[in-house]
């Protein structure tokens, strides 16, 4: 493992300008340590998603560098890039399951980064990996759905399959992009519990975009506030008052955040 004081995720002067000139991110500097549960809050359109999707390079950044566990993902290519991505799991707002494939096959998708392409093509997953996938499904209480087609599950179940997929991937980092936005409150809590479980039991670093302040308060250890592509707040959850949230969501009309990054 890397040196103990090296951050898991490190963003250095990261900026993103879209082709149409919109500023997505501006001068982001951020360190996230191993084992942290970070929630990113902000209005929609503030750049939360862009921030998250830059970390595993689903989107390229325009400037700056992002370092994952000591390796720069911004300069990585081909196989190197895929190997770094293998260490970063992602949970999506719309679950992004392959709807017509079985739950098992969806969960196994988490393992593709570990195999040469030809093996996955012929579905030659190792027995242990299939077992691992099944165990992951048991962790999220969906063992009985293992051969069901994904499109026959409810939204909450689909998101839990996605969590099992990430668990099977066995990453060091989990990025969760609005994991609960398409779910009802109760299912949302269940999904967040599962994420917390990955964080606490497996020591995975979690970075989650959340819309709901309530959920953020309940599950986050650290809060990062984003507004107009910039970090406007960064602090421990326990030290964060309601006023700070109000400020983040008020688009800077209220008093200024206590701590700038």
């Amino acid at each position: 493992m890397a040196a103990t004081n090296q951050p898991m995720i490190q963003l250095k002067n990261v900026g993103k300008i879209y082709d149409n000139g919109t500023v997505g991110l501006k001068d982001i500097n951020l360190n996230i340590d191993k084992g942290e549960f970070v929630v990113v809050v902000g209005l929609s359109g503030a750049g939360k998603s862009t921030l998250l999707r830059s970390i595993n390079r689903l989107q390229d950044v325009s400037e700056g560098d992002i370092i994952i566990d000591g390796k720069s993902i911004t300069s990585a290519k081909g196989k190197d890039l895929r190997e770094i991505r293998r260490d970063i799991g992602m949970i999506f707002q719309s679950f992004n399951l392959v709807k017509r494939s079985s739950v098992l096959r969806n969960v196994l998708t988490g393992r593709v980064g570990y195999y040469p392409t030809w093996k996955t093509t012929f579905n030659l997953f190792a027995k242990e990996d299939k077992q691992k996938a099944y165990e992951a499904l048991q962790r999220v209480d969906l063992a009985d759905k293992v051969y069901t087609r994904a499109d026959q599950l409810s939204g909450g179940q689909q998101q839990r399959v996605a969590i099992a997929r990430v668990l099977t991937q066995n990453p060091k980092i989990i990025l969760a992009d609005e994991p609960t936005a398409s779910l009802d409150p109760q299912t949302s809590r269940r999904v967040m519990h599962d994420l917390k479980m990955l964080n606490e039991e497996y020591g995975m670093t979690v970075v989650a975009n959340l819309h709901s302040v309530e959920l953020a308060k309940e599950f986050g250890d650290r809060v990062i506030g984003v507004r107009a592509g910039q970090i406007v707040y960064d602090g421990k959850m326990s030290e964060t008052s309601q006023a700070v949230f109000d400020d983040i969501y008020n688009g800077g009309n209220g008093k200024k955040g206590e701590e700038d990054a």
């Binding site: 998708t109 393992r111 593709v112």
Partner: peptide, 8 residues
């Protein structure tokens, strides 16, 4: 995207 994110 999900497959890409898993390193596929």
């Amino acid at each position: 995207e999900a497959v890409t994110a898993a390193g596929g």
